[in-house]
């Protein structure tokens, strides 16, 4: 279970998240929708432990001593505290983030990178490199990634679509327990979107306990990946949660209604 409790986050002194609560159980898909600047990506980065995002560990609202326990913030993965962990420790605990803007690194080929990452996570199959490569090539084909991409420098000169597919490939290879997909749909055409969604659905089918947080701006992606829960995020808070119908409602009426009532 991935538990986020009372998460307050600021960036360069500016409060962005103002108390987010979220529980994702194994096998669940949660969609977080919201307008630009509502704090969706901040949530993604904070979960993964980006150093520029300051988590307020205790919220003191008055000068009087208060029951801090009640206000304390938490990020827990299967009972393990993540809040005080570095990004690599969080990854090793089973968390994955598919980046909205994947970073490029010169001189490191995709395949070398994947090999080192899987070794670090202790995921190399016992019968070695060859098996790993076979599995990798299999995934690559299904995600429609040109094989030659594996030999190129990580994300360097990749198109937007290639980067997003590569994020999903990494997710497939690194086999997390919980994955956050940060606007994986942005900048993808419908065909690419289907391929990416297929990839996610395959992983869900293979690993029934995989929990996913889908961060998205549009309902488009949710036609291909069916969420169990939809949350609406406005101004750093989740203002409404519901089933799939909530996404359709958003599509129809936009975020205005929530902005006003909020």
């Amino acid at each position: 279970m991935l538990v986020v409790k009372n998460l307050h986050v600021s960036v360069e002194g500016k409060p962005i998240l103002k108390g987010v609560d979220l529980v994702v159980r194994p096998g669940e898909i949660h969609a977080i929708m919201g307008p630009n600047g509502s704090g969706k990506s901040t949530l993604a980065y904070t979960l993964m432990g980006h150093p520029a995002y300051d988590v307020e560990k205790k919220i003191i609202t008055t000068n009087k001593p208060i029951n801090t326990n009640k206000y304390q913030c938490k990020i827990m993965l299967d009972g393990k505290d993540l809040l005080h962990k570095t990004p690599d420790e969080r990854a090793r605990a089973g968390l994955f983030l598919a980046f909205q803007y994947p970073v490029s690194i010169e001189g490191i080929s995709v395949q070398n990178f994947l090999r080192q990452a899987t070794q670090t996570l202790g995921l190399q199959p016992k019968n070695g490199v060859l098996k790993f490569r076979q599995k990798l090539l299999h995934e690559v084909k299904r995600l429609g990634i040109p094989e030659e991409l594996l030999r190129r420098s990580l994300n360097e000169g990749f198109s937007g679509g290639e980067k997003k597919r590569l994020e999903i490939l990494q997710m497939a290879v690194l086999r997390p327990k919980y994955a956050v997909l940060d606007e994986t749909d942005s900048g993808l055409d419908v065909d690419a979107l289907k391929v990416v969604a297929d990839g996610v659905n395959r992983m869900m089918a293979k690993n029934k306990t995989l929990g996913i947080i889908l961060i998205t701006h549009y309902q488009r992606l949710l036609r291909f990946i069916k969420p169990d829960v939809v949350h609406v995020m406005i101004d750093g808070r989740i203002v409404k949660s519901g089933g799939r119908e909530l996404a359709r409602e958003l599509e129809r009426e936009g975020y205005r209604k929530f902005l006003i009532s909020h």
Binding site: M48, T86, P87, A91, V103, I105, F113, T120
Partner: peptide, 14 residues
């Protein structure tokens, strides 16, 4: 910082 964060999010230590 972004490059480091990206690699660390894949399990590599700093």
């Amino acid at each position: 910082e972004e490059q480091l964060f990206y690699l660390m999010s894949r399990g590599l230590n700093e």
